[in-house]
């Protein structure tokens, strides 16, 4: 395998990772605050649809992004209403949101654009364009470092950079601000937070809203960056891979980035080498590569490679003491 092939696979990894990473961080906020969210997939799908649809109608990718964030946040608030206010089962609510998204986007898409269940092809300003980082052209000729900078790091969409910048931001917000401390506290010990005079309910709602916003950006990436429009069920399990990455990363932002990069890398490999030959083992079927993120999650979750312990109050609604 030569340098160029490696570079191409890594570049492909960086293109496949952002939606996973954004959704993974989205789940991180919600679950750290004690609200389990298996509806990342659904929120992302709704966002992808509205980004594609509104970008097509308005002609601007940014307007599409705003619509995606709004739609995803509405879904997140529905989840919040069910699980925080009504103290319903958070897992069931997540399942419902996934189906609502899968059915709703196809149904609305069919009646809005009448092009099957797709949105119109996006072009020009309706799609995000790739950004060339400064000096990318001038240092391209430097051996190794030049192509790494110009071909690998440069030339991605704005959302890709946002996704990776969201990692240090999340780390700072969760572990170095008062807001972050409180957010983590409502996920571990809500009684203590309540005793300190802080509203557990409002804190959790804020976490869920952040989840909605991040899922919205993730969805917009799918339909306005990576692809030129929305296709039915285009998330294709990415929300669950993000969830897997979140557990894999033990609910930590930096680890989340590495986990998403790993899963993105696996996807890049399986696209590039559908039937991977490993000397001494034989051909690895493409289905195994596709299932690998899920298998790894099961292994991690079972504690065979370090233990993944979820936030203590996760999944349980808070009932104020009288």
């Amino acid at each position: 395998m030569d340098f160029n092939t490696i570079l191409q696979i890594l570049d492909s990894t960086l293109r496949l990772t952002p939606p996973l990473l954004l959704a993974c961080l989205a789940g991180l906020y919600s679950e750290r605050a004690g609200v389990f969210d298996i509806g990342l997939e659904g929120k992302m799908l709704v966002a992808a649809f509205f980004a594609g649809a509104v970008a097509a109608v308005s002609g601007y990718a940014w307007v599409g992004l705003a619509a995606a964030i709004a739609a995803s946040t509405v879904m997140a608030l529905l989840h919040g209403f069910a699980s925080i206010t009504l103290r319903g089962n958070q897992l069931i609510s997540g399942v419902a949101i996934n189906f609502l998204a899968a059915g709703g986007t196809a149904l609305i898409g069919l009646n809005w654009f009448r092009q099957g269940t797709q949105t119109p092809q996006l072009n020009g300003s309706a799609r995000f364009s790739e950004i060339t980082l400064p000096f990318a052209d001038s240092i391209h000729s430097i051996p190794y470092l030049g192509p790494i900078y110009a071909d690998l790091l440069s030339g991605h969409w704005i959302i890709s950079y946002i996704a990776f910048l969201a990692v240090p931001f999340t780390w700072w917000l969760l572990f170095h601000t008062r807001f972050g401390l409180r957010l983590r506290a409502v996920g571990e010990n809500p009684e203590a937070v309540d005793t300190a005079g802080i509203s557990v309910i409002w804190m959790r709602y804020r976490a869920v809203i952040i989840t909605g916003i991040l899922c919205g950006i993730a969805g917009a990436y799918l339909s306005t960056c990576m692809n030129a429009g929305f296709v039915k069920n285009m998330t294709a399990g990415k929300g669950f891979i993000a969830l897997a990455a979140l557990i894999f990363a033990k609910w930590k932002p930096w680890s989340a980035m590495w986990a998403c990069l790993l899963f993105g890398f696996l996807e890049a490999i399986s696209i590039r080498f559908p039937n991977l030959e490993i000397p001494g083992i034989g051909t690895i079927p493409v289905q195994f590569m596709q299932a690998l993120p899920y298998i790894l999650t099961v292994v991690i979750l079972a504690g065979f490679v370090g233990k993944a312990i979820p936030p203590k109050a996760g999944g349980e609604a808070y009932v104020k003491e009288r």
């Binding site: 209403f81 069910a82 699980s83 009504l86 319903g88 089962n89 958070q90 069931i92 609510s93 399942v95 419902a96 949101i97 996934n98 189906f99 609502l100 899968a102 059915g103 709703g104 196809a106 149904l107 069919l110 269940t117």
Partner: peptide
């Protein structure tokens, strides 16, 4: 897909809500 929407609403209203 309407079936999927109905299914989602049933799960939502009988389960989560």
């Amino acid at each position: 897909e309407m079936i999927l929407v109905i299914q989602a609403l049933v799960i939502l209203f009988t389960g989560a809500l």
